[in-house]
Nucleic acid binder design. Sequence first.
DNA 1: TCTGGGGTCCTAGGACCC
DNA 2: TCTGGGGTCCTAGGACCC
Length: 424
Amino acid sequence: MYALADCNNFFVSCERVFNPQLNEKPVVVLSNNDGCVISRSNEAKGLGIPMGCPAFQIKNYTNATNVVVLSARHILYRDISNRIMHILGDAVLNLEVYSVDEAFFMLPNDDDEKNRLLLAELVKKIYKYVGIPVSIGFAPTRTLAKIASHVAKKDTKNTSRVMGLTTQQAVDEVLQRTKVEDIWGIGRRLNAKLLSSGIDYANKFVKLPQSFLHSIGNINLVRTQQELLGKDCISINPVTIAHKSIMNSRTFGHVLKNKKEISDAVLSFAQACATQLRQEQAAASTVTVYVRGDHFRQDLPFYSNSCSVRMQAHTSSTIEIVRNALIAFNNIYREGFYYRKASVMLSDIKPMTELQLNIFTGDKEVRQGRLMNAIDSINKRYGSKQIMLAPSLTRGEWAPQQNNFNAQSKNLHFYSGMSNTFKP
DNA sequence: TCTGGGGTCCTAGGACCC
DNA sequence: TCTGGGGTCCTAGGACCC
């Protein structure tokens, strides 16, 4: 049996832990740059505010009700997430942290009732020690466990917030009232294709021939169907999931034209990627830089492009990674356009332990490795930005804006200045 | 006026090999 | 009029997830 623990309205719930006045009020948390809604309380959902709603459209849904609109504090959410994952990790087998607010794990018992009691205890424990409401579903496959956790979350009569799909009868009943768009693995495109063939609910989806699934999707869609039929198709991840790519990317606070300002952003993102890479004790051989204009500005010419540079050898040195990121950036920067976003991605990542020294770069690699170790330990001890490459010492023009937009409606309450109130 | 930031996997098609 | 039959590797793009 697999279980999935899923935090309810996670970012909003985190904010409520530190500000109980937010309880029972409609609350939303915004994406970086205060762009759009990424977490909603039940009350906000009740007002009809959709996921991904642009911040400036919230007022269209408020209906004369006070909505509390908050900028995101991802460092805080990550810390709370870690606490929850520790509690889960101590109690269960094979914890797979799937996202900041979700984790899969295996259940120890064959007995449904024992499992149910164990999970109900975990839900209580997490609420008691961390203050976050969690729902847990369990079933023979991950895809069914996911559906079970949704059912548990929505069923307000079920106070234990635990739901098992352990008999065929229970599965059949739930599939009958699960829309295909709510199945894990079926997104907007596939949903549209299925609907146009008259497939609206999961009980119809599971009866489709595999040849049809192949014709509208790929092998993953067949796997999703098999999972709903109770056949475990998703291979178990190793204990520590190594990243295959590392990315750092921001939408700028406003459009930028000046090459230096944008290359400062690229430099800063490349440094962040390199630091994370070393934290994971890994090295990468490919750096990709991407830039684009502003989709929403009809009045400006639009340009987007990306460039990948393959480095001579795998490296985790900030100096090498930044140097190559800037080469890639120089390749794609075009004079005369306005830019709104840039990103840096590292790929072809390997653990340090698997790497051999390249005969061309060996000595330099060793020396830069010592330098990077020194920088990392100083930054760890005295604060994350004590030593950086020189051009990134100033706060860039590209910095995203938070708490810095106009409230058009008196119905909107904008909280600000809360960013540093949390002490782990 | 104002629209996020990460990730993964799969497939088709091109380049290249013998 | 006629133009082989296998392979591999890489990349771009599309789909999905949170």
